[in-house]
Amino acid sequence: MHEFLAQLVNGISLGGIYALIALGYTMVYGIIGLINFAHGDVYTLGSFFALTILTALGVSGELHGVALVVDVAIALIGAALLCGIVGVLIERLAYRRLRNAPRLAPLITAIGISFILENVMQIWKGPAPVSFPAVVPNPSVMVAGVAIGAQQFLLVGLAVVMMVALQLFIHNTRLGRAMRATAEDRDAAQLMGININRTIMLTFLIGSALAGVAGFVSGVYYQSTWFFNGFGAGLKAFTAAVLGGIGNIAGAMLGGFLIGIIESFATWKFGGQWSNVTVFAILILVLVFRPSGLLGEAVFERA
């Protein structure tokens, strides 16, 4: 029972990262019908940006007090902002001109962008894993006999706050309404006076910024990253988005936490070498038996 709870806590932490990444997949799919395979690499970029910012600030270890809050905030917001800009640039330079092309063209382009980002990051920080400073102290509290670290609270708390903020934005603001309208019917949205280029740009900005947040928290949590990190994490976050129902924002959050928990339990019960097999077997099962996902409506209802 004790081990079960410990694995559950691990799974939720891991799931928070997957959920943040999955949001970007699902938002972009919802609005332009593209599976943005470069998204996982934007997440890695988030770790790299955060690391670079922390290094520039002269941070190499644990922080306390005001410095903790200020430096963490700068690294977090900086990574989110820079990733958001990268996402917007990718859309502007690569995907926009393919918006009315056959669906395979932007998909292949996304894979190409993914390769470009991975190679750029490999040149930037080298092929080996790079260590990330443990900026956030990690005292733990015992809950029902399980030690939960401060980093886990930070990670999950940050993920939940981001998700709630996103939901509020999407459902209660003029721009959020414009994003939903564009996702449902692009032509009709334009007839409302919505500039869909700007709306799609905003979607990439938010989705990529959330990946940047995920990149920062995963760096803090694992204290390590490498240029290829986003490949696996991206695929699992994509699986999470599909499990929840791709295009559905609440589904991406649910799917992210579920995939994190499943992976964590698979590692515990079957061993680490089985965790990927388990996760991707679930992807196949979902695609075969419930392609619309747990919370999704009909997936291919878009005209």
């Binding site: 003029r174 309404r177 414009a178 939903r180 309208a181 449902e184 019917d185 032509d187 009709a188 949205a189 007839l191 409302m192 006076g193 919505i194």
Partner: peptide, 22 residues
């Protein structure tokens, strides 16, 4: 437009609010 093209996943009020998006 032809075929009405209302936003079926939104409420009537949201549809009307979108009409006044500008």
């Amino acid at each position: 437009p032809e075929g009405r093209r209302i936003f079926t996943r939104m409420t009537v009020r949201e549809n009307l609010a979108l009409g006044a998006y500008t």
